[in-house]
Design a protein around this nucleic acid. Structure first.
Length: 592
RNA sequence: GGCCCGGUAGUUCAGUUGGUUAGAACGCCGCCCUGUCACGGCGGAGGUCGUGAGUUCGAGUCUCAUCCGGGUCGCCA
């Protein structure tokens, strides 16, 4: 193998132009085209590809060396830039080539387990095992470069607006609220554990109490919950907090960021202010707190229309305080056959609904799953109320609102995907005024929907003791095309109100002290009104790159069982390590 | 934890009703070729059909179990 002694790279492969005359470039061998007396090699780096030419008649020794080059070998070459005889219009450097006068083979490559090409069809499992090779592929390189640019833009924007970047600890106290913590054993304090942060929540609030006024951090966060295509156990938030603000101030600041981001990176003009919906309205119209508003198919309440119906399913739902609601898939009758609708029925049963009533209007007489229970003219009224026409399919759910709305929301999304009616676009949407409490049917108590430092709406504080169901929070989510991108809130800065909130949540003084004592104390020394948000950098990058999975925008992602196929983390540790930590494994799989 | 989908050369896939020596393309190796750019031509190597049991005269194909991967529900304040 050669060294690069005496050579210095003059430019990247993708940047070579005719004006440069002579260049020195380095890169990976993308492809060798050996014509016998002349060899063409595509040399690749992160910027692109440039063609090298080796001619038998000009530099015999260089040519003979070039004959030994294989795919993915790392080369460094010096040579003259000249125009190609025939231009490749597919690539930026397609009009030029380098006639190589000096060739160094800096590193030889084993044959890779899969071809390093843009449109690889190799299954992800293998690509993840050799992630470092997969990352050589252009689509992934481009994604990570995009991600870098998003992070850079975030820093630029928030720095310009007076935010200070401050690091918060990764080894913190475990507070078993919300998601499961990843815990880290302490050697010095046997039996005690640190937790990895689910977010820097408490620390950023403390920074406001300290008077830093505006804080930002690209914070790594950890949650020990099951994975999804859009959920990794380890992820990054653009985490921020501001003082002397209320909801509108924060939303305005964040809208400025979204606008700059899309302008700088995708050259897309996002109109601000962004649309807003309250949680209640989003649920009522879309059956979701993160609706995809790129298409309609909104939910219609037909409770009034069917209030005198003798159909037992509708009646029992209404009598128990529920509702009858439906959605209409326009022109859906062709795609939604009886068989497909049967699948939807199974689907809604799987997500908690008792069933699904439907009308499939193909011919003059609609096929209706509940037709025989309808009185004269009743079905017509229902169809009119829903706006269901010939060629459409109406899907109706009758139950408590807690069931009808989310079920129809999920159905709306599923049917829209099935009918392929979701247009491309960037539909941002604020969801505001989330319920503060959520009734837990199992335990028969009200539990917080958010962390306990969230501020209720000013005018709702009066209901804290009297009617918890009415209390809405100064909470906001930013939704993009049906994905939750950002979540934030105004925090409570009044110690008395905070104490009250803890009590509302059924926490004893001992619990409060044990979990949040330091934070409660801190607020006693005065804090400006403040609030903030965490923007999911991974999800943002995923959507901006047009990817379906976070794995495409994370350099070294975890797979569904939370392991990492390349390094095979997590792994067993030695007896010595465990002993030092005072940890004993029960039912140790390492010992069979 | 539940449900659904998948696993056959290095890779992507085909493999009929269970039936001879499991095929193709790409990649790899060798030879030929001076204008290729998904180069081309000729030849070659390469398989524990995820694993284990079962049914059978005979299993890539059927049955059961199991492992691995993906999606999803639960879960994710």
């Amino acid at each position: 193998m050669d060294t690069m002694k005496g050579m210095k790279r003059s430019c990247y492969c993708g940047e070579v132009t005719l004006e440069m005359k002579e260049v020195t470039v380095g890169g990976f061998t993308q492809r060798v085209r050996d014509k016998g007396g002349i060899i063409f090699i595509d040399l690749r780096d992160r910027t692109g590809i440039v063609q090298l030419v080796f001619d038998e008649n000009t530099e015999k020794s260089v040519f003979e060396k070039a004959e030994t080059i294989r795919s993915e070998d790392v080369l460094m070459v010096r040579g003259a830039v000249r125009a190609r005889e025939s231009v490749n219009t597919e690539i930026r450097t397609g009009g030029v080539e380098i006639t190589v006068t000096e060739l160094r083979i800096l590193s030889k490559a084993q044959t890779p387990p899969f071809e390093i090409v843009s449109n690889s069809k190799t299954n992800e499992e293998l690509r993840l095992k050799y992630r470092y090779l997969d990352l050589r592929r252009k689509p992934l390189q481009d994604n990570l470069i995009m991600r870098h640019n998003i992070a850079k833009c975030a820093r630029e924007y928030f720095y310009e607006n007076g935010f200070l970047e401050i690091e918060t600890p990764m080894m913190i106290k475990s507070t078993p609220e919300g998601a499961r913590d990843y815990i880290v054993p302490s050697r010095i304090h046997n039996g005690k554990f640190y937790a990895l942060p689910q977010s820097p929540q408490m620390y950023k609030q403390l920074l406001m109490i300290s008077g830093f006024d505006r804080y930002i951090q690209l914070a790594r966060c950890f949650r020990d919950e099951d994975l999804r295509a859009d959920r990794q156990p380890e992820f990054t938030q653009i985490d921020l907090e501001m003082s002397f603000v209320d909801v509108d101030d924060i939303l305005e600041m964040l809208e400025g960021f979204i606008h700059k981001l899309y302008n700088d990176i995708l050259d897309v003009d996002i109109k601000i202010p962004l649309p807003r919906l309250t949680y209640d309205e989003a649920m009522r119209r879309f059956g979701s707190d993160k609706p995809d508003t790129r298409f309609g198919m909104e939910i219609t309440d037909i409770s009034d229309v069917v209030k005198d119906s003798e159909f037992v399913v509708f009646r029992s739902a209404l009598e128990s305080g529920g509702s009858v609601r439906g959605i209409v898939a326009e022109n859906g009758a062709a795609a939604l056959t009886r068989k497909e609708i049967d699948k939807l029925v199974e689907y809604v049963k799987g997500i908690g609904a008792k069933g699904l009533a439907y009308v499939r209007w193909v011919d003059d007489a609609p096929t209706c799953s509940f037709g025989k229970f309808m009185k004269e003219g009743e079905l017509e009224k229902i169809l009119a109320a829903l706006g269901c026409k010939k060629g459409d399919v109406a899907l109706i759910v009758a139950d408590k609102d807690k069931v009808t709305l989310p079920t129809l929301g999920a159905l709306r999304l599923k049917v829209a995907k099935q009918l392929d009616i979701i247009p491309a676009g960037w539909n941002f949407l604020w969801i505001t005024e989330f319920p503060f409490f959520e009734y837990d049917d199992e335990n028969g108590e009200w539990v917080a929907m958010h962390h306990p430092f969230t501020m209720p709406l000013d005018e709702h504080i009066q209901y804290l003791d009297t009617d918890k169901s009415r209390v809405r929070a100064k909470c906001y989510d930013l939704v993009l095309n049906g994905t939750e991108l950002l979540s934030g809130s105004i925090r409570i800065n009044d110690p008395e109100l905070q104490q009250h909130m803890f009590e509302m949540l059924g926490m004893t003084d001992e619990e409060i002290r044990a979990k949040f004592g330091f934070l409660v104390d801190a607020y006693k020394y005065a804090a400006p009104p403040h609030g903030g948000a965490g923007i999911g950098l991974d999800r943002l990058a995923m959507l901006m790159c047009g990817c379906d999975s976070l794995r495409d925008v994370v350099a070294f992602p975890k797979v569904q069982n939370a392991s990492e196929p390349m390094s095979e983390a997590p792994s067993f540790v030695s007896e010595e390590q465990l002993k030092e930590l005072g940890i004993k494994i029960v039912n140790d799989p390492a010992k069979g």
